[in-house]
Nucleic acid binder design. Structure first.
Lengths: 198, 198
DNA sequence: AAGCGCGATGTCACTCGCTGACATCACAGT
DNA sequence: ACTGTGATGTCAGCGAGTGACATCGCGCTT
């Protein structure tokens, strides 16, 4: 039971609130402090005042805790693509979505960077990140199809967008200054056009 | 000890030869028969006449057995990019490499398809595949840099190539006929040019 | 106000992937 | 014959992840 169940004389409810948030935070802290592999789920749970079993009720596995935000990002991308003005070309719709995502990352600059450092340091986490990116691409492709774009155009546009996101984000993360990510993405789309024209 | 150590009166050596190959085959068979998750490493090893411990001496994990060929594929792509005639554009060098890879898959059409069916059926395997593809992209980008191509051009060209590979391969696999994969890839590169121009 | 169902959490036992340490033993070279 | 080596086996153990069942405040019903 322990910390999470501390009861005050006043009418505090049975459990300390925000179990998921506590787990997320404990995990991030430990992953940063000692690395992903060197952290056990039991340690995370204990730091959050919960048990291992409860951790797995909130997160399907030890990696997922770092990717909890991916769902809302995907939703954002899909909505942006879907809501692009009629007549917008597939690549422009995708580019718009990707640049908005870029702005989001930029708002949480420090968070994005430490998070990325944790991921880069571990192969399992890189795998998980790649499948999340692939899911984003698939979702955007689906959104394009919803706009009447045929395959393979839809898939290609979506994958191109994700490639730009990946590459721009990597560069941006490695920079120490406060480089503008959406701008960098816009430039990358232009570069991509030039590259494919080669 | 068991099957692997059968000794014939003639001077056969201590161990049945080709342990790695036997493990690979046993694993593939079981993954196809019963699925990846439903197969334990102990079963694979036992079918190959070896022990679990030995499996892990040949393959770093249960998934890797399906991706053993990735190293030589990567080598092929890198060599092809590197050896492209001077003056070849980055995207053309990449396209050449990707189409050669496509020809390779086509040679082993049935094998490619059953293998892909196994991978598609399991999320962990998809993750592993994605990281292998990312490694291919990184290697091609590096090869381009070796030709004097600067980033982000090199990375973008490489990622574009992998996107084409992924999408074309997916379509090709889903087709029942004997569609020409390299040709489909060439078309996808053309589509990509049109898409990015949008 | 007593009773009751529910939901969040805990406890326990278990499987399986994976690893380190050490043993075995045919074969090759001396 | 002697010995070193490489491929394999044996064993013990950790940690991720899961299923089944127990606990117990809270809030609704009556």
């Amino acid at each position: 039971m322990s910390v999470a169940a501390i009861k005050y004389d006043s009418g505090v409810s049975r459990w300390e609130p925000n179990a998921r948030g506590r787990l997320e935070r404990a995990a991030m802290d430990l992953y940063v402090e000692r690395g992903f592999e060197q952290t056990t789920v039991a340690e995370i749970a204990s730091r959050a005042g919960l048990t291992e079993r409860t951790f797995f009720r909130y997160f399907s596995d030890k990696r997922e805790v770092l990717f909890y935000g991916a769902a809302s990002l995907q939703e954002l991308l899909v909505t942006t693509v879907t809501d692009a003005p009629a007549g917008t070309s597939p690549i422009s719709a995708v580019a718009g979505a990707i640049e908005i995502a870029g702005a989001l990352f930029q708002e949480r600059r420090d968070g994005s960077r430490t998070r990325q450092a944790v991921i880069e340091a571990n192969a399992e986490l890189k795998e998980r990140e790649l499948i999340k990116l692939a899911a984003l691409a698939a979702a955007m492709a689906e959104a394009l199809r919803g706009r009447g774009v045929k395959d393979p155009i839809a898939s290609l546009a979506a994958e191109a967008g994700i490639a730009v996101l990946k590459i721009s984000f990597e560069e941006w993360v490695s920079l120490s200054g406060d480089d503008d990510l959406p701008l960098r993405m816009r430039a990358a789309f232009a570069d991509l056009r030039a590259v494919t024209a080669g």
